[in-house]
Lab assay of single mutants.
Amino acid sequence: MKVMIRKTATGHSAYVAKKDLEELIVEMENPALWGGKVTLANGWQLELPAMAADTPLPITVEARKL
């Protein structure tokens, strides 16, 4: 699914347009965010693609819901 990742004042957030859902990312498998699992505030887990740590945000990526 397409997910937009952006930086907020409190960390990172994910927006899933198909579900009209925006949630804070509360847990990251990798400190650089990319190439691992993230957990959203509502409990969803997404697998993000591997990208460079300095990838500019906001960005829309293809993520997989676990």
Rank of each mutant, 00 (worst) to 15 (best):
M4F: 07
H12I: 13
L57W: 07
I25L: 06
E23K: 05
A14Q: 02
Q45F: 08
H12F: 15
L40T: 02
S13W: 14
A53Q: 10
V61C: 04
V26H: 04
P56I: 12
T10Q: 14
P31Q: 11
G35M: 02
M51P: 00
P58V: 03
L48C: 01
T8G: 08
E27H: 13
I25R: 00
K18F: 14
E62W: 15
V61P: 00
P56E: 12
L21G: 06
P58I: 06
L48Y: 02
N30W: 08
E22P: 05
A14T: 05
T60N: 06
A53H: 12
N42H: 02
L40I: 02
W34A: 02
L57R: 01
T10M: 13
G36A: 05
A41S: 11
L24K: 12
T8P: 02
T60L: 11
P56W: 06
P56Y: 07
K18Y: 15
E62K: 09
P58A: 02
K19M: 15
A9H: 10
E62Q: 12
K19A: 15
L66F: 11
N42M: 04
M1Y: 13
K37L: 10
M1H: 05
G36D: 00
W44D: 06
Q45S: 08
I25E: 00
D54Y: 06
L48V: 04
A32V: 09
T10I: 12
M51K: 07
L48S: 01
Y15N: 05
L46H: 04
W44P: 02
I25K: 02
K19N: 15
R64E: 09
T10E: 12
S13D: 04
N30P: 01
A17N: 08
M28C: 11
D20G: 13
K65I: 15
S13L: 11
M28L: 07
V38W: 03
V38D: 01
V16W: 15
K37Q: 07
V38K: 00
K2V: 14
N30Q: 10
L21C: 14
W34G: 02
A50L: 12
A14G: 07
T8S: 10
S13Y: 15
K37V: 12
A63C: 11
L24T: 13
I5N: 03
A53T: 10
K65F: 15
L57A: 01
A14E: 01
T39Q: 06
N30R: 10
P58M: 04
K2S: 12
T10H: 13
L21R: 11
Q45L: 13
I25G: 01
A14L: 14
L33E: 02
L40E: 00
H12R: 07
E29C: 06
V61I: 09
R6Y: 11
E22M: 09
D54W: 07
L57T: 05
S13C: 13
L33S: 02
K2H: 12
M1S: 04
Y15E: 06
A63W: 04
H12L: 13
E62N: 12
R6W: 09
E47T: 09
L66P: 06
P58D: 03
E47A: 10
Q45T: 13
P31L: 09
W34V: 02
L46N: 00
G43K: 02
L46K: 00
T10R: 12
G43Q: 06
A52T: 08
P31H: 08
A17H: 14
I25T: 04
L40N: 00
A14C: 11
L24A: 14
I25H: 01
T10D: 13
M28T: 11
H12Q: 04
A50T: 10
G36T: 04
A53C: 08
A41H: 07
E29W: 06
M51I: 08
A14F: 09
T55Q: 07
S13V: 14
N42S: 08
K19V: 15
V61A: 02
E23T: 13
E47Q: 13
T10N: 14
A53V: 11
K19S: 15
T39D: 00
R64Y: 13
W34L: 04
A53K: 10
K18G: 15
L46W: 02
M1W: 14
M4N: 09
H12W: 15
A63D: 01
P31Y: 07
W34D: 00
W44V: 05
M51V: 06
L24W: 08
A32N: 14
G35H: 01
T8C: 08
I25Y: 00
L33Y: 02
G11N: 03
L33C: 07
G11C: 05
D20A: 11
A63P: 01
E29G: 05
E62P: 08
A63L: 08
S13P: 02
V26Y: 06
K65N: 11
P49I: 05
E27Q: 12
L46S: 00
S13G: 07
M51D: 01
K19G: 14
A53D: 12
P49A: 02
M4C: 11
E22H: 12
E47V: 14
D20V: 07
E23M: 15
E22S: 09
K18V: 14
N42C: 09
E27G: 10
A14P: 00
L24I: 13
G35D: 04
K7Q: 10
L46E: 00
G43W: 02
W44F: 07
E27P: 00
E23I: 15
T55S: 05
L24R: 13
K7G: 06
R6H: 09
K37H: 08
T8I: 09
D20C: 12
A9T: 12
E27N: 09
G43C: 04
E29P: 00
V16F: 15
V61K: 01
D20E: 11
A53Y: 10
A14I: 15
A63G: 06
N30C: 10
L33I: 08
A41G: 10
W34E: 02
P58G: 03
L21S: 08
W44E: 03
L66M: 12
R6E: 04
K19D: 15
G36W: 04
L24D: 14
H12E: 02
M4G: 04
V16N: 07
E62V: 15
E23N: 07
A52W: 06
I59R: 06
V38A: 03
P49G: 04
Q45H: 08
T60K: 04
E27L: 09
N30D: 06
P31W: 07
W44Q: 03
K65G: 09
I5W: 03
A53N: 10
A17I: 15
I59M: 10
I59V: 13
K2T: 15
H12A: 05
A53R: 10
T8M: 07
H12K: 02
T55Y: 04
L40V: 02
K19P: 10
A9W: 07
K65L: 15
I5H: 01
E29F: 05
M1A: 04
I5L: 05
A53L: 10
G35P: 04
M4V: 14
Y15R: 09
T60H: 05
A50R: 11
N42G: 06
Y15A: 07
E47N: 08
L66R: 05
K37S: 09
I25S: 01
I59S: 04
M1L: 13
E22I: 09
Q45M: 12
D54A: 07
A52C: 08
L48E: 01
T39L: 10
A32R: 13
V61M: 03
S13Q: 08
A17S: 09
W34M: 01
A9E: 13
E22C: 12
P49Y: 06
K2Y: 12
E27Y: 14
V26N: 03
G43S: 00
R64V: 13
M4Q: 14
K37C: 08
E47I: 14
A17L: 15
T8W: 06
D54H: 08
T8V: 11
E47P: 00
K37F: 10
Y15C: 08
K37A: 07
I25M: 00
G36K: 03
G11F: 04
P56N: 08
A50D: 12
W44C: 11
K65V: 15
L48I: 05
N30V: 07
L24E: 15
A52N: 10
L40H: 00
A41K: 08
R64T: 12
A52Y: 06
A9L: 12
E27T: 10
E29T: 09
E47R: 09
A9F: 09
M28A: 12
P31S: 09
K19H: 15
P31E: 13
G11K: 01
T55G: 02
K37Y: 11
T8K: 07
G11Q: 05
W34S: 01
A63N: 01
L66I: 14
S13K: 09
W44A: 01
L33P: 03
I59W: 07
T39P: 02
A50C: 10
L33K: 01
W44R: 00
L40Q: 01
Y15T: 11
A52Q: 09
P56S: 09
V38P: 01
G36H: 02
P31A: 11
R64A: 09
I59E: 02
M28K: 11
G36R: 01
M4I: 14
P58K: 05
D54E: 10
K65W: 15
E23L: 15
G11H: 05
A41C: 06
G11V: 03
M28E: 03
I25A: 01
E22L: 13
R6V: 10
G36V: 04
A17E: 14
V26C: 08
D20M: 12
D54P: 02
R6L: 11
T39I: 12
A17T: 11
A52K: 09
L33D: 02
E29I: 05
P49S: 06
E23W: 15
V26E: 07
K37T: 12
A32P: 03
